[in-house]
């Protein structure tokens, strides 16, 4: 799998500092925690800690279209009204919310977990077919914004948003953001990302290392103690 997360320093003097390296690990952990790896095409984190400036740019890949009634439920016309029958409950709360908003709670009768009935005089099957039940992109977008706020250090509360067609860039700082900083970020983002060489991660890599000794940190003094007697 190609690399998705790039962390770069805007300061020439500290290109591969510990902070820069560990933020790549933090971003990887957060994306895997929130399970949004698939929704992101590329994430670039730009850091200049001396200004201080922290920018996160995300290129999104949100493939799924909004879910309409015809994709999600089976519609049947009965004597008592239009029956909406579903087979899985993933979007059941959203479906109910849409029906309640459109026809009122009094007119929506739930027969069981899978079946709901609405009176025939309120709407037709053809109209119902195209109603949007849920938009998974909205949920995914919430998660992506959550991930960005988790990655950005807590003190960086002043934000400047640069919306784009295929994603978004958030520039943050604890001081007022200056125009030139925005220009610097835009210029850097126009360049292709510079990946950190993998050998830089050797020291902070989390890998179990082979060891001969049986290490019991808080028990070690006892063994010494017993040998002394």
């Amino acid at each position: 799998m190609s690399e998705k997360i790039f962390v770069e320093s805007l300061d020439e003097t500290c290109q591969h500092d510990f902070g820069i390296l560990i933020y790549k690990i933090i971003a990887e952990y957060i994306l895997s925690d929130l399970v949004i790896g698939q929704a992101i095409q590329q994430m670039r984190v730009l850091i200049d800690i001396k200004k201080p400036l922290f920018a996160v740019s995300v290129q999104l890949s949100l493939p799924r279209q909004p879910i309409r009634m015809k994709d999600y439920a089976r519609l049947e016309e009965g004597t008592d009204g239009i029956h909406i029958i579903i087979h899985d409950e993933t979007y059941a709360p959203e479906l109910l919310k849409v029906l309640w908003n459109s026809f009122g709670k009094n007119n929506v009768a739930q027969i069981d977990r899978w079946e709901t009935v609405i009176p025939r005089n309120l709407t037709t099957i053809n109209e119902l077919q195209n109603v949007i039940v849920a938009d998974p992109r909205e949920k995914m977008m919430e998660k992506i914004l959550d991930a960005i706020t988790r990655i950005i250090p807590e003190a960086f509360r002043i934000e400047h948003l640069l919306p784009e067609a295929s994603g978004l860039t958030i520039i943050t700082s604890e001081n007022p953001i200056q125009e030139e900083w925005i220009e610097i970020v835009k210029a850097t983002l126009a360049q292709p990302p510079k990946p950190i060489p993998p050998e830089m991660f050797e020291e902070i890599k989390r890998e179990p290392k082979k060891t001969e000794e049986i290490y019991k940190p808080w028990k070690k003094p006892i063994n010494d103690l017993m040998h002394d007697v």
Partner: peptide
């Protein structure tokens, strides 16, 4: 031991705590 997103489980990390 700075801002880390994982628990300390490996020997090298436990040595840091030590």
């Amino acid at each position: 031991i700075g801002r880390i997103p994982y628990r300390t489980r490996f020997l090298s990390e436990i040595r840091k705590l030590d």
